[in-house]
Nucleic acid binder design. Structure first.
Length: 598
RNA sequence: GGUGCGUUAGUUCAGUUGGUUAGAAUGCCAGCCUGUCACGCUGGAGGUCACGGGUCCGAGUCCCGUACGCACCGCCA
């Protein structure tokens, strides 16, 4: 037996017991005749003491210990002379009578402490050392608990966890696939699933009724702080349901997770249409921890967000506004105190290429109610007062205005500005959670690159029944039975009611530009299945990594993934991906055009 | 595919206008220390300034390129 207890469990009540502990040496304090060793495992730290009672041999051995040595120590639990209130076991120590060095360790390349001195790069290279640190380990523990509570809730609701294959077919639409060559089928490739979408729909056809799976999904696209090439999805599907049933079920799951993991009671989730999200927040994933909604000051066209034309608040005179197709503003409460320099910084912010605005117009509401703006020479006080009125601004507020030719582009710029102001004003507290549903997404969005309509969610999403006639006349305005769950500006999940009618599915494929032959080739298996009694069904998938990151207050999903990939999709610990032997290539009948540095 | 920032001791970083032998902290090694717990004290070792090229009397510092890292845009049904 290697140990009788863990390093986190002994307390003052255990004094007098003889115990054996095993773990890693966190640190050694050698005071000459006295030596203290902090022994660490997943559960905590317990101090080993080598004092005047210890034999010379024992003290000599303790003196040889270095950081991260793996040791086993037996001794009597004793009360400490001076307690350490910072750790749970701080009242006791082990008076060691026997010490075994189970394994020596080289000096680790960075310190394994809560506040490590290591940068991201080196910590990823030695991720197994990084995982010994409390903050990282705690993230994995939270992730475990999260997944466990997901399973508990869905099990209670009658869901079956069903595994679907990892080796599937490449699909058109969507992200790039990771492909896997098949040795037994030369020249042919499997693809790793971007999501088990079609398979879960087939499990509905199979009568499984309620399916879920916590599974890996793969997308060969560029990475971000919130995007990994392989990520974990909580994939769910239900039969004989309408949108309302799904929203209720998964709002319930989120409520369960918030309660059991964070002990937070979340209110009923507000529902916002996609059109309103775009109109008031310029984003399909609005951060609703704070208001500062957009006010439209001029629109010249009806689009998917604006259902009416707003005549310009501003009389002619300022060319930028006169020529704009859209003018929108936000009112920043109490921000009139910003200096000219600070506002110039905001102007620089919106002019950065990532945001792309041409400039920024601002107006301060003064103590006396008058308005002082950067466009005073174009507009009189009467117009500025009308602006104040329209923006619902009061003394001390700062109005920020963006304009441009393309309403959707300006909305996105204004969204960035709003989020920046929210951050500067301290309105985006990580642990203040604001959840909502965004509903009524459009079916399609125009792709400049492909020069055709693309499915906004995926091609299996059903249109709203009342919009079906528009499929023939104005497909771009058709709304889908699709919904996203958004928390603090993060899309944590999304789904839709699916098409279960082969004819309608065929029509949707046509609108997406598939010939019947192509549709049959790529999705024949699904449409064939629909011929054999497909129930109405729908579902949703959560991004587990993102959801856990939110709960843990992390900036990057990497921090809650045990062995993540870096920015270039590499695993720097494994040094993957790597080259393979010519022999393997030959067996697969694959030739690689250029293979450098092998 | 693109933009920005970065790369200096094991690690995290500083390094002024281009100017003598590149510094700090921490870690590491050695010695001392009977209650430490961020132990303390003394001493020591430790550098291809990412790589390649250029400008210059002289480059860690300026310029160009490459590689790598991070963030972002495109992309991510």
């Amino acid at each position: 037996m290697y140990r009788t207890n863990t390093c986190g469990e002994l307390r003052i009540e255990n004094v007098g017991q003889t115990v054996t502990l095993a773990g890693w040496v966190q640190g050694v304090h050698n005071l000459g005749a006295l030596t203290f060793v902090d022994l660490r495992d997943r559960y905590g730290i317990t101090q080993l003491a080598f004092n005047e009672d210890a034999t010379e041999e024992l003290r000599e051995k303790a003196g040889r210990l270095g950081r991260e040595y793996v040791v086993q120590a037996t001794g009597i639990v004793a009360e400490r002379y001076s307690k350490n209130k910072k750790i749970a076991t701080g009242d006791i120590e082990i008076l060691v009578s026997e010490l075994n060095i189970l394994n020596a360790s080289e000096v680790p390349p960075f310190t394994i402490e809560d506040e490590s001195d290591g940068g991201d790069d080196i910590r990823m290279k030695y991720r197994y050392l990084d995982l010994r640190r409390n903050p990282v380990r705690r993230n994995l523990e939270l992730r475990h608990k999260f997944a466990f509570e997901v399973r508990r809730y869905l099990d209670q609701q009658g869901f079956l966890e069903i595994e679907t294959p990892i080796l599937v077919n490449s699909t058109p639409e969507g992200a790039r696939d990771f492909v896997v060559p098949s040795r037994m089928n030369p020249g042919q490739f499997y693809a790793l699933p971007q999501s088990p979408q079609t398979l879960k729909q087939l499990s509905m056809v199979a009568g499984m009724d309620r399916y879920f799976q916590i599974c890996k999904c793969f997308r060969d696209e560029d990475l971000r702080a919130d995007r990994q090439p392989e990520f974990t999805q909580i994939d769910c599907e239900m039969s004989f349901v309408e949108q309302e049933d799904i929203l209720q079920m998964f709002e319930g799951m989120s409520r369960h997770l918030f309660k059991t993991i964070l002990n937070i009671d979340i209110p009923t989730l507000p529902r916002m249409t996609w059109a309103d999200a775009m109109k008031y927040y310029g984003s399909d994933k609005p951060d609703t921890r704070f208001g500062m909604e957009f006010v439209e000051l001029k629109t010249t066209a009806i689009d998917n967000a604006s259902k009416e034309i707003v005549p310009s608040l501003f009389p002619a005179g300022f060319a930028v506004f006169d020529d704009a197709a859209y003018i929108g503003g936000i009112c920043c409460e109490g921000q009139a105190v910003l200096t000219r320099k600070q506002i110039d910084q905001l102007t620089e912010f919106v002019k950065r290429p990532q945001v792309g605005a041409k400039g920024l117009v601002y107006a301060r509401v003064q103590e006396d109610g008058s308005v002082k703006s950067s466009v005073d020479k174009f507009y009189n006080q009467e117009t500025l007062q009308a602006l104040k009125e329209k923006m619902n601004a009061k003394s001390g507020d700062l109005i920020l205005i963006l304009s441009g030719d393309d309403a959707m582009k300006v909305r996105k710029q204004l969204c960035e500005l709003r989020l920046e102001m929210g951050t500067r004003m301290g309105l985006r507290d990580k642990f203040n959670f604001s959840c909502l549903w965004v509903i009524d997404f459009p079916m399609y969005e125009w792709s400049d690159e492909e020069q055709r309509l693309m499915a906004m969610h995926h091609p299996f999403t059903s249109p709203k029944p009342e919009d079906i006639p528009l499929l023939d006349t104005d497909p771009a305005s058709v709304r889908a039975n699709a919904y996203d769950m958004v928390i603090n500006g993060v899309e944590v999940g999304g789904g839709s009611i699916r098409i279960h009618d082969a004819k309608l599915q065929q029509k949707i494929f046509e609108i997406l530009g598939f010939t019947p032959e192509q549709a049959q080739l790529k999705f024949g298996f699904l449409m064939n299945a629909f011929k054999f009694g497909a129930p109405p069904h729908g579902g949703l998938a959560y991004g587990l990594d993102r959801f856990v990151s939110l709960f843990a207050g992390l900036d990057s999903i990497r921090d809650c993934i045990a062995f993540p990939k870096n920015n270039s999709g590499r695993d720097v610990m494994l040094d993957a991906p790597g080259y393979i032997d010519q022999k393997q290539l030959d067996e697969l009948q694959i030739s690689v055009v250029e293979q450098e540095k092998q």
